[in-house]
Design a protein around this nucleic acid. Structure first.
Lengths: 231, 231
DNA sequence: GTAAACTTAGACAGTATTGTCTAACACGTC
DNA sequence: GACGTGTTAGACAATACTGTCTAAGTTTAC
């Protein structure tokens, strides 16, 4: 009642910032350990050590191991979805410089959604624990890869209205665009390696080149072979 | 010395057949449980129950849990490699009916190597335990996906000598062929579901159609659009 | 029928882990 | 300086699992 410089948030200012930092530290460490060891193999003590936090603090914030796991997955899914949305919004709207724009988009998709920390985490955890926690990953299933191909399908449809693309089935084309983007990276990511930017760029180039050979308007993709004669 | 109908193998006949059955039963059950629960989550008791065998029998055959795990992975890798070799040998040699033959090949590859029991097991276990047992899966890495794209690269090179395919980089094309074949199945296999034959066939058709649009000789893939006019 | 080999159920010690509890400690507000 | 909130280290019971051991049972070969 006396002096209220920060009426509502004042009382919980610094304390909550500390709490918040602890929570984040725990989430981060737990994601790492769960990703490395799986749910069964991860021990609370290991997470506590990696988060530089006492075991009791973890139990204070997240009642039990499973609650913590759910919170971690939820957190990563939210971050990954936000990133996916952001990358999708950068899909080219016009068809001038189609190959360059699509290549850059494929590169961003691989780097920020597929091969990044969260993407690796989700791929691994869905494989490891997907059957034990189907409800937990369902939102990922629908909003992650499912949303990606749906959104991409619509974006390809809009883009092909200009006539630069000749696509009969947009859903199939969307899935193939993603698949081609991963074609060169599959072997690298299989064992958890993180591709370099050069590898990501090369993969994106190869993917888009083939995608446009298949779906690009013939007049735009074929001529190089013919005009070369004149050189 | 008395009566030797089966001189060398006679002494170990039925016993070893019984032993052999137990070993197989254990290997099979262990593969299932390891696949479901991962190495840390799998318990010897559960494996013993699923194999209808006493726990001690497992310890008699495979000294400890890790030995059993290694044996299981080894067994599955060998089976998977044999199957991969068999499917690769059915790659079309001639270019008449190219689309049909490649589609059938892609179907076989998906059904018998990627989406089958062993393929699912290996994908999951490599993700789960690949970092803990790098040496164990290295042979898989090299002889599995690596061998597949290498062999496919060579087969595509041979096939394109006839002029039916126009491929600049055979390695890239091989990886893309595999990636396209999985494009429609990725979402299904992500959660462990096994695609139906109809889904596998549809996926193979879509994959090969796009692959040939990109790499098929223009004269062979484009005409349908033109001849339709005459119908 | 007998002996050898294999299998089984159960007890067992050793270890690791989860989740609870307690008492001391740190830090900020009043 | 007193108080409340949040943190820490450690002890603790309960549980589960691995790997060993033993004594019995079963199968197979001769």
């Amino acid at each position: 009642m006396r002096n209220r410089a920060t009426p509502a948030k004042g009382t919980t200012g610094h304390t909550q910032r500390g709490q918040c930092a602890k929570r984040l530290s725990i989430l981060e460490a737990a994601a790492d350990v769960f990703c490395r060891q799986g749910f069964a193999g991860a021990s609370i003590d290991e997470i506590a050590a990696e988060a530089c936090v006492s075991r009791q603090t973890i139990y204070n914030h997240y009642r039990e191991k499973e609650t913590l796991f759910v919170a971690v997955v939820d957190d990563v899914i939210n971050r990954a979805n936000a990133m996916l949305f952001s990358v999708l919004s950068s899909f080219p709207e016009r068809a001038d410089n189609l190959e360059g724009d699509l290549t850059a988009f494929s590169f961003r998709l691989s780097k920020n959604c597929v091969c990044n920390h969260d993407g690796k985490f989700l791929r691994k955890l869905v494989q490891t624990e997907g059957e034990h926690y189907p409800h937990l990953f369902e939102s990922f299933r629908q909003q992650g890869p499912g949303k990606l191909t749906n959104a991409l399908s619509a974006l390809l449809a809009r883009l092909s209205q200009s006539g630069a693309l000749v696509i009969d089935d947009f859903d199939v084309a969307a899935r193939q665009f993603v698949a081609l983007g991963n074609a060169d990276l599959q072997l690298l990511t299989l064992f958890g390696a993180t591709p370099t930017d050069e590898q990501l760029e090369s993969a994106a180039r190869n993917a888009v080149r083939t995608f446009l050979r298949a779906y690009g308007r013939p007049a735009l993709t074929e001529p190089p072979q013919l005009t070369v004669i004149g050189v």
